[in-house]
Design a protein around this nucleic acid. Structure first.
Lengths: 184, 184
DNA sequence: AATTAATATTCTACAATGTAGAATATATAT
DNA sequence: ATATATATTCTACATTGTAGAATATTAATT
C-alpha cells in the first residue's frame, strides 16, 4: 500500500506536525548517511511531506543549513579543568574535526555564520585550554587564528579525500604548533 | 544585428576554431570577474558557441575545472636562491593565497587533483625555501602539512568572507610557525 | 575522383535542484 | 459566526550538467 497522500492545507491536530527541530534532525541524519548535503526534496521525502513545507520553517536552504550547523555545537569537546593543556588541545581539535568529517559540505555554511556558531565555540574553548600558558594578547590571537583555519583546511582535505585521510593527520602539525607556543 | 548563428556541424577552416586553452582561458576570466565558478553555459556563451561544444574538449565540467586549476600553477611564486627564508616563505604563501582568492570555488577541485597540481607545487617550493633550516624529515613534513592545510583553511575563510578578510591575515599565524621552526 | 571515416559542431531533451506564488484546509481570535 | 492566521500541498519556472542524435566539414582510403 502506498503511503497515504496527505491532504492539502493545514493538517488536523491528530496528524503529526512538522517542526524545525525535526527537519534539522532529518537533514542531519541524511547528511551523515549519504556523506553530503541533502536536497530539500530528499529531506521532505523522509519526512513524508511536500518539499515546500520546509519553507514554512526555514526561509531558504542556507538558513536550514545554518541551523543544522549550529546544532553541531553540542558535539564539540568541553575541556575539563586541571588537565594537561596539550591533551585538552588535542581532544578539542579532534572532536571538531570529527564533527566536520561526519557532516561534509557544511564548511562554507559554518564559515559564513555571523551568529555564535561552532567556530566561535572552538575559539572560546581554545581560550580556556590555553589560559595556563599566559600568552600575550597577540600571541594568543596568532595561535587561535592559526589553529582554527588549520582545522578548516584539514577538514576540507578530508572531505575531498575521505579514504586517504583520517583525523590523526593533525598529530604532527599540532606538535609543531605546541612547540611554537612553548617557546613563548 | 544579432550575432550570426553558427551552422550545425564542423565549421569551415576560416571559422574560428575552439581549443581547450581558449575554453580554460574564458572560464578563468569569468571566474575572476564574477567571483565564482561559471556554468558551462556561461563559458560557451562568451565563446559564442553551443554549450555542448565544450564537451568535445573536456569530458565533464570537473575535468575542465581541473585543467583550469592546473593552469594556475604559473602564478605561484618561484623562490630565489640566497634570500632570507622567512621572506621567501611569506611571498610563497601570499602568492598562493592570492591565487585562491582571485579564483574562488576551486579549492575542492584543487584538493581532489591526483596529478601534479598547485598544492604539490606549493609543497615543492616550500621544500626549497626551508632547505637551509636543515630540519629532520619528520619536522619538515610537519611544517609542510601544517602550512598547506592552513593556507587552504584561510583561502576558504576569505572565500566565505571576502569583505572582512585579506591576505594579510596570515601574518600573525605565520610568525608563530616560524617560531616553532626556529626552535628545532 | 569517389567514398568512407573522423572530427567539430549544434540541437533536442531530460533529470535534479532551489524556490516563487497560489490554492486549500485547519486552527485560533474576534 | 466570521475573519484571520497558520500549515500544508500543488503547480510552475529558471538554472544546471550532460546524454544522445543530427549534421557539416575535413582527412584518409580506395
Amino acid at each position: 500500500m502506498a503511503v497515504k497522500a496527505r491532504k492539502r492545507g493545514r493538517p488536523a491536530q491528530d496528524q503529526s506536525q512538522l517542526t524545525a527541530e525535526l527537519i534539522v534532525l532529518s537533514a542531519r541524519r541524511l547528511m551523515q548517511e549519504n556523506g553530503k548535503v541533502p536536497s530539500i526534496r530528499q529531506v521532505s521525502s523522509v519526512l513524508g511531506v511536500d518539499p515546500m513545507a520546509i519553507y514554512h520553517y526555514f526561509s531558504s536552504k542556507s538558513v536550514l543549513l545554518e541551523a543544522l550547523t549550529i546544532s553541531l555545537i553540542e558535539d564539540i569537546y568541553d575541556p575539563k579543568e586541571g588537565r594537561k593543556w596539550q591533551d585538552e588541545l588535542e581532544q578539542l581539535c579532534k572532536s571538531y574535526l570529527e564533527l566536520l568529517r561526519t557532516h561534509p559540505g557544511l564548511l562554507e555554511t559554518l564559515l559564513s555564520i555571523k551568529a555564535f556558531g561552532p567556530a566561535q565555540v572552538f575559539n572560546q574553548r581554545l581560550a580556556i585550554i590555553l589560559a595556563p600558558l599566559e600568552l600575550s594578547q597577540s600571541a594568543f590571537t596568532q595561535a587561535q587564528d592559526l589553529l582554527v583555519d588549520y582545522m578548516h583546511g584539514v577538514a576540507l582535505a578530508i572531505q575531498c579525500n575521505p579514504d586517504n585521510l583520517s583525523s590523526n593527520c593533525i598529530d604532527g602539525p599540532l606538535s609543531l604548533i605546541r612547540l611554537g607556543l612553548e617557546s613563548r
